[in-house]
Design a protein around this nucleic acid. Structure first.
Lengths: 148, 148
DNA sequence: CCACTCTTCTGGAATCAATCAAGTTTGCGC
DNA sequence: GCGCAAACTTGATTGATTCCAGAAGAGTGG
Protein backbone atom coordinates (compact mmCIF):
# COMPACT_ATOMS: atom_id res chain seq x y z
CA UNK A 1 0.00 0.00 0.00
CA UNK A 2 2.76 2.38 -0.90
CA UNK A 3 0.33 4.56 -2.78
CA UNK A 4 -1.90 4.96 0.23
CA UNK A 5 1.10 5.96 2.27
CA UNK A 6 2.09 8.57 -0.24
CA UNK A 7 -1.42 10.03 -0.36
CA UNK A 8 -1.68 9.97 3.41
CA UNK A 9 1.43 12.09 3.72
CA UNK A 10 -0.18 14.43 1.22
CA UNK A 11 -3.17 14.76 3.54
CA UNK A 12 -0.71 15.35 6.35
CA UNK A 13 0.82 18.22 4.42
CA UNK A 14 -2.63 19.67 3.80
CA UNK A 15 -3.41 19.60 7.49
CA UNK A 16 -0.11 21.12 8.52
CA UNK A 17 -0.53 23.84 5.92
CA UNK A 18 -3.56 25.12 7.81
CA UNK A 19 -2.10 24.57 11.28
CA UNK A 20 -4.25 21.59 12.14
CA UNK A 21 -2.90 18.64 14.08
CA UNK A 22 -2.44 15.42 12.19
CA UNK A 23 -4.65 12.75 13.69
CA UNK A 24 -5.92 9.41 12.48
CA UNK A 25 -9.59 10.51 12.35
CA UNK A 26 -8.67 13.50 10.21
CA UNK A 27 -6.61 11.48 7.78
CA UNK A 28 -9.42 8.93 7.52
CA UNK A 29 -11.99 11.64 6.83
CA UNK A 30 -9.83 13.17 4.13
CA UNK A 31 -9.37 9.75 2.53
CA UNK A 32 -13.13 9.18 2.58
CA UNK A 33 -13.72 12.54 0.91
CA UNK A 34 -11.12 11.78 -1.74
CA UNK A 35 -12.84 8.49 -2.64
CA UNK A 36 -16.40 9.84 -2.56
CA UNK A 37 -16.91 13.19 -4.25
CA UNK A 38 -20.22 14.13 -2.57
CA UNK A 39 -20.49 12.31 0.71
CA UNK A 40 -22.96 12.76 3.55
CA UNK A 41 -21.98 12.76 7.20
CA UNK A 42 -23.41 9.34 7.93
CA UNK A 43 -21.40 7.72 5.15
CA UNK A 44 -18.26 9.46 6.34
CA UNK A 45 -18.80 7.87 9.75
CA UNK A 46 -19.29 4.41 8.23
CA UNK A 47 -16.19 4.67 6.01
CA UNK A 48 -13.98 5.99 8.77
CA UNK A 49 -15.12 3.26 11.16
CA UNK A 50 -14.30 0.61 8.56
CA UNK A 51 -10.65 1.39 9.29
CA UNK A 52 -10.91 2.84 12.77
CA UNK A 53 -13.91 1.34 14.60
CA UNK A 54 -13.43 3.39 17.74
CA UNK A 55 -13.89 6.81 16.15
CA UNK A 56 -16.88 8.60 17.63
CA UNK A 57 -19.49 10.42 15.60
CA UNK A 58 -18.64 13.58 17.47
CA UNK A 59 -15.07 13.38 16.20
CA UNK A 60 -16.39 13.23 12.63
CA UNK A 61 -18.52 16.31 13.14
CA UNK A 62 -15.59 18.11 14.76
CA UNK A 63 -13.22 17.12 11.98
CA UNK A 64 -15.61 18.13 9.24
CA UNK A 65 -16.17 21.47 10.89
CA UNK A 66 -12.44 22.05 11.34
CA UNK A 67 -11.74 21.13 7.72
CA UNK A 68 -14.56 23.38 6.58
CA UNK A 69 -13.29 26.31 8.64
CA UNK A 70 -9.81 25.71 7.23
CA UNK A 71 -11.16 25.73 3.70
CA UNK A 72 -10.08 22.16 2.88
CA UNK A 73 -13.63 20.93 2.27
CA UNK A 74 -16.90 22.50 1.27
CA UNK A 75 -20.28 21.75 2.71
CA UNK A 76 -23.22 21.55 0.35
CA UNK A 77 -26.78 21.11 1.49
CA UNK A 78 -29.46 20.83 -1.18
CA UNK A 79 -32.94 21.57 0.18
CA UNK A 80 -34.56 18.59 1.81
CA UNK A 81 -31.37 16.51 2.05
CA UNK A 82 -28.74 15.98 4.71
CA UNK A 83 -25.45 17.84 4.54
CA UNK A 84 -22.83 16.59 2.10
CA UNK A 85 -19.15 17.38 1.91
CA UNK A 86 -16.73 17.59 -0.98
CA UNK A 87 -13.00 18.10 -1.11
CA UNK A 88 -13.02 19.94 -4.43
CA UNK A 89 -12.66 23.56 -3.41
CA UNK A 90 -11.40 26.77 -4.84
CA UNK A 91 -12.82 26.63 -8.36
CA UNK A 92 -16.34 27.83 -7.56
CA UNK A 93 -18.07 25.01 -9.39
CA UNK A 94 -21.76 24.18 -9.03
CA UNK A 95 -23.94 21.11 -8.71
CA UNK A 96 -26.75 19.30 -10.41
CA UNK A 97 -29.04 17.38 -8.05
CA UNK A 98 -31.50 14.60 -8.87
CA UNK A 99 -34.94 15.23 -7.40
CA UNK A 100 -35.81 11.57 -7.03
CA UNK A 101 -32.63 9.89 -5.79
CA UNK A 102 -30.58 12.83 -4.53
CA UNK A 103 -27.55 12.06 -6.69
CA UNK A 104 -25.13 14.95 -7.06
CA UNK A 105 -22.75 15.74 -9.90
CA UNK A 106 -20.34 18.60 -10.44
CA UNK A 107 -20.96 21.29 -12.99
CA UNK A 108 -18.08 23.50 -13.99
CA UNK A 109 -18.58 27.20 -13.62
CA UNK A 110 -17.66 28.99 -16.85
CA UNK A 111 -16.38 31.94 -14.86
CA UNK A 112 -14.41 29.93 -12.34
CA UNK A 113 -14.31 32.47 -9.56
CA UNK A 114 -16.87 33.90 -7.15
CA UNK A 115 -19.23 35.53 -7.57
CA UNK A 116 -19.87 34.21 -11.06
CA UNK A 117 -23.26 35.90 -11.32
CA UNK A 118 -24.36 39.35 -10.37
CA UNK A 119 -27.78 40.03 -8.94
CA UNK A 120 -30.05 42.35 -10.87
CA UNK A 121 -30.97 44.10 -7.61
CA UNK A 122 -28.85 43.21 -4.58
CA UNK A 123 -30.97 45.18 -2.06
CA UNK A 124 -27.77 46.63 -0.61
CA UNK A 125 -26.30 43.23 0.17
CA UNK A 126 -22.57 42.76 -0.38
CA UNK A 127 -22.61 39.59 -2.45
CA UNK A 128 -19.44 37.49 -2.48
CA UNK A 129 -20.71 34.21 -3.90
CA UNK A 130 -23.44 32.97 -6.19
CA UNK A 131 -24.37 29.37 -5.53
CA UNK A 132 -26.20 27.55 -8.30
CA UNK A 133 -28.12 24.30 -7.88
CA UNK A 134 -29.47 22.70 -11.01
CA UNK A 135 -32.49 20.55 -10.18
CA UNK A 136 -33.50 17.71 -12.45
CA UNK A 137 -33.51 13.97 -12.97
CA UNK A 138 -30.41 11.83 -13.22
CA UNK A 139 -29.95 9.39 -16.12
CA UNK A 140 -30.74 6.35 -13.94
CA UNK A 141 -34.01 7.76 -12.63
CA UNK A 142 -34.98 9.16 -16.06
CA UNK A 143 -34.59 5.95 -18.06
CA UNK A 144 -34.99 2.78 -16.00
CA UNK A 145 -36.79 4.31 -13.06
CA UNK A 146 -35.56 1.03 -11.57
CA UNK A 147 -33.07 2.58 -9.20
CA UNK A 148 -35.61 3.60 -6.63
CA UNK B 1 -61.62 45.25 9.33
CA UNK B 2 -63.42 45.11 6.04
CA UNK B 3 -60.12 44.85 4.20
CA UNK B 4 -59.12 41.78 6.14
CA UNK B 5 -62.42 40.20 5.29
CA UNK B 6 -61.92 40.93 1.63
CA UNK B 7 -58.41 39.46 1.62
CA UNK B 8 -59.57 36.45 3.60
CA UNK B 9 -62.13 35.67 0.95
CA UNK B 10 -59.32 35.99 -1.56
CA UNK B 11 -57.39 33.31 0.31
CA UNK B 12 -60.57 31.27 0.34
CA UNK B 13 -60.74 31.51 -3.44
CA UNK B 14 -57.11 30.45 -3.71
CA UNK B 15 -57.77 27.37 -1.62
CA UNK B 16 -60.90 26.41 -3.52
CA UNK B 17 -59.06 26.85 -6.79
CA UNK B 18 -56.75 23.99 -5.86
CA UNK B 19 -59.49 21.81 -4.27
CA UNK B 20 -58.37 22.39 -0.70
CA UNK B 21 -60.87 22.78 2.09
CA UNK B 22 -61.16 26.21 3.65
CA UNK B 23 -60.15 26.02 7.29
CA UNK B 24 -59.13 28.58 9.85
CA UNK B 25 -55.54 27.29 10.17
CA UNK B 26 -55.05 27.50 6.43
CA UNK B 27 -56.39 31.05 6.18
CA UNK B 28 -54.19 32.08 9.09
CA UNK B 29 -51.09 30.54 7.48
CA UNK B 30 -51.81 32.30 4.19
CA UNK B 31 -52.23 35.59 6.03
CA UNK B 32 -48.91 35.08 7.84
CA UNK B 33 -47.17 34.39 4.53
CA UNK B 34 -48.70 37.48 2.96
CA UNK B 35 -47.36 39.67 5.79
CA UNK B 36 -43.92 38.07 5.99
CA UNK B 37 -42.25 37.41 2.65
CA UNK B 38 -39.68 34.84 3.87
CA UNK B 39 -40.96 33.19 7.00
CA UNK B 40 -39.69 30.15 8.86
CA UNK B 41 -41.96 27.45 10.26
CA UNK B 42 -41.54 28.49 13.87
CA UNK B 43 -42.61 32.05 13.15
CA UNK B 44 -45.62 30.81 11.21
CA UNK B 45 -46.68 28.87 14.30
CA UNK B 46 -46.26 31.93 16.52
CA UNK B 47 -48.22 34.20 14.17
CA UNK B 48 -51.04 31.74 13.66
CA UNK B 49 -51.37 31.15 17.40
CA UNK B 50 -51.62 34.87 18.01
CA UNK B 51 -55.09 34.64 16.44
CA UNK B 52 -55.89 30.98 17.02
CA UNK B 53 -54.11 29.73 20.15
CA UNK B 54 -55.35 26.16 19.83
CA UNK B 55 -53.72 25.39 16.50
CA UNK B 56 -51.18 22.61 16.82
CA UNK B 57 -47.73 22.66 15.28
CA UNK B 58 -48.64 19.53 13.38
CA UNK B 59 -51.45 21.41 11.69
CA UNK B 60 -48.98 24.07 10.54
CA UNK B 61 -46.67 21.46 9.05
CA UNK B 62 -49.65 19.80 7.35
CA UNK B 63 -50.93 23.08 5.97
CA UNK B 64 -47.53 24.16 4.69
CA UNK B 65 -47.08 20.83 2.98
CA UNK B 66 -50.54 20.97 1.44
CA UNK B 67 -49.98 24.51 0.19
CA UNK B 68 -46.59 23.54 -1.18
CA UNK B 69 -48.00 20.51 -2.98
CA UNK B 70 -50.75 22.72 -4.40
CA UNK B 71 -48.18 25.23 -5.65
CA UNK B 72 -49.49 28.13 -3.54
CA UNK B 73 -46.23 28.55 -1.60
CA UNK B 74 -42.60 27.75 -2.19
CA UNK B 75 -40.20 26.30 0.29
CA UNK B 76 -36.67 27.67 0.38
CA UNK B 77 -33.93 26.24 2.51
CA UNK B 78 -30.55 27.98 2.43
CA UNK B 79 -27.74 25.75 3.69
CA UNK B 80 -27.45 25.77 7.45
CA UNK B 81 -30.81 27.37 8.13
CA UNK B 82 -34.30 26.13 8.89
CA UNK B 83 -36.88 25.94 6.12
CA UNK B 84 -38.59 29.15 5.06
CA UNK B 85 -41.72 29.66 3.01
CA UNK B 86 -42.79 32.36 0.61
CA UNK B 87 -46.04 32.98 -1.20
CA UNK B 88 -44.44 34.57 -4.25
CA UNK B 89 -44.49 31.76 -6.78
CA UNK B 90 -44.47 31.31 -10.52
CA UNK B 91 -41.90 33.89 -11.57
CA UNK B 92 -38.75 31.85 -10.89
CA UNK B 93 -37.03 34.54 -8.88
CA UNK B 94 -33.96 33.96 -6.71
CA UNK B 95 -32.70 34.98 -3.28
CA UNK B 96 -29.85 36.77 -1.63
CA UNK B 97 -29.02 35.48 1.87
CA UNK B 98 -27.01 37.17 4.62
CA UNK B 99 -24.33 34.91 6.04
CA UNK B 100 -24.38 36.47 9.49
CA UNK B 101 -28.05 37.09 10.26
CA UNK B 102 -29.80 34.89 7.71
CA UNK B 103 -31.90 37.69 6.24
CA UNK B 104 -33.41 36.88 2.86
CA UNK B 105 -34.36 39.20 0.02
CA UNK B 106 -35.80 38.54 -3.40
CA UNK B 107 -33.77 38.93 -6.56
CA UNK B 108 -35.60 39.06 -9.84
CA UNK B 109 -34.56 36.57 -12.46
CA UNK B 110 -33.84 38.32 -15.74
CA UNK B 111 -35.18 35.33 -17.65
CA UNK B 112 -38.28 34.84 -15.55
CA UNK B 113 -38.90 31.20 -16.32
CA UNK B 114 -37.18 27.95 -15.39
CA UNK B 115 -34.53 26.91 -16.09
CA UNK B 116 -32.92 30.32 -16.43
CA UNK B 117 -29.42 28.91 -16.66
CA UNK B 118 -28.06 25.98 -18.60
CA UNK B 119 -25.33 23.78 -17.22
CA UNK B 120 -22.08 23.58 -19.15
CA UNK B 121 -22.04 19.80 -18.69
CA UNK B 122 -25.24 18.29 -17.32
CA UNK B 123 -23.85 14.74 -16.92
CA UNK B 124 -26.96 13.37 -18.62
CA UNK B 125 -29.28 14.94 -16.07
CA UNK B 126 -32.57 16.37 -17.34
CA UNK B 127 -32.45 19.80 -15.73
CA UNK B 128 -35.74 21.63 -15.22
CA UNK B 129 -34.75 24.36 -12.79
CA UNK B 130 -31.68 26.37 -11.86
CA UNK B 131 -31.81 27.67 -8.31
CA UNK B 132 -29.51 30.55 -7.48
CA UNK B 133 -28.57 31.65 -3.97
CA UNK B 134 -26.50 34.79 -3.65
CA UNK B 135 -24.47 34.71 -0.44
CA UNK B 136 -23.26 37.89 1.17
CA UNK B 137 -23.77 40.40 3.93
CA UNK B 138 -26.90 42.43 4.43
CA UNK B 139 -26.73 46.23 4.89
CA UNK B 140 -27.40 46.01 8.63
CA UNK B 141 -24.64 43.49 9.28
CA UNK B 142 -22.23 45.24 6.91
CA UNK B 143 -22.46 48.69 8.47
CA UNK B 144 -23.46 48.67 12.11
CA UNK B 145 -22.70 45.05 12.85
CA UNK B 146 -24.95 45.92 15.80
CA UNK B 147 -27.97 43.99 14.67
CA UNK B 148 -25.76 40.93 14.45
C1' DC C 1 13.78 10.54 25.21
C1' DC C 2 10.46 12.60 28.78
C1' DA C 3 7.18 15.66 30.75
C1' DC C 4 3.88 19.39 29.96
C1' DT C 5 0.18 21.81 27.76
C1' DC C 6 -3.36 22.49 24.78
C1' DT C 7 -5.99 20.52 21.22
C1' DT C 8 -8.63 16.76 19.94
C1' DC C 9 -11.30 12.63 20.78
C1' DT C 10 -14.66 9.55 23.43
C1' DG C 11 -19.04 8.57 25.36
C1' DG C 12 -23.34 10.07 26.55
C1' DA C 13 -26.97 13.26 26.99
C1' DA C 14 -29.58 17.05 25.01
C1' DT C 15 -31.64 19.91 21.41
C1' DC C 16 -34.35 21.09 17.53
C1' DA C 17 -36.82 20.59 13.29
C1' DA C 18 -39.65 17.57 11.35
C1' DT C 19 -42.47 13.33 10.90
C1' DC C 20 -45.50 9.54 12.38
C1' DA C 21 -49.60 7.46 14.67
C1' DA C 22 -54.23 7.22 16.77
C1' DG C 23 -58.23 9.20 17.73
C1' DT C 24 -61.45 13.36 17.31
C1' DT C 25 -63.37 17.19 14.87
C1' DT C 26 -65.14 19.57 10.90
C1' DG C 27 -65.86 21.14 6.02
C1' DC C 28 -68.82 20.30 2.47
C1' DG C 29 -71.46 17.46 -0.99
C1' DC C 30 -75.85 15.19 -0.78
C1' DG D 1 -79.35 18.09 8.82
C1' DC D 2 -76.24 13.39 7.52
C1' DG D 3 -72.33 11.09 6.59
C1' DC D 4 -67.81 10.59 4.94
C1' DA D 5 -63.39 11.85 3.96
C1' DA D 6 -60.20 15.42 4.82
C1' DA D 7 -58.16 17.99 8.32
C1' DC D 8 -56.92 18.80 13.12
C1' DT D 9 -55.26 17.70 18.14
C1' DT D 10 -52.44 15.39 21.16
C1' DG D 11 -48.41 12.99 22.12
C1' DA D 12 -44.68 10.19 20.96
C1' DT D 13 -40.72 9.45 17.82
C1' DT D 14 -37.20 9.96 14.57
C1' DG D 15 -32.84 11.76 12.83
C1' DA D 16 -29.30 15.06 12.23
C1' DT D 17 -26.63 17.89 14.87
C1' DT D 18 -24.71 20.04 18.97
C1' DC D 19 -23.31 20.45 23.94
C1' DC D 20 -20.72 18.77 27.87
C1' DA D 21 -17.16 16.60 30.94
C1' DG D 22 -13.49 13.81 31.24
C1' DA D 23 -9.71 10.95 28.85
C1' DA D 24 -6.32 10.56 25.26
C1' DG D 25 -2.98 12.15 22.15
C1' DA D 26 -0.17 15.58 19.22
C1' DG D 27 3.31 18.76 19.27
C1' DT D 28 6.84 21.58 22.05
C1' DG D 29 10.55 22.63 25.15
C1' DG D 30 13.73 20.52 28.39
Amino acid sequence: MAIVGAVTSDFEAQLRAVSLRVTRPRLAVLAALRDHPHIDTDTVIKLVRADHPTVSHQAIYDVLRALRDAGLVRRIQPAGATARYESRVGDNHHHVVCRSCGAVADVDCPVGHAPCLTASDDHGFVVDEAEVVYWGTCPDCATGRTTQ
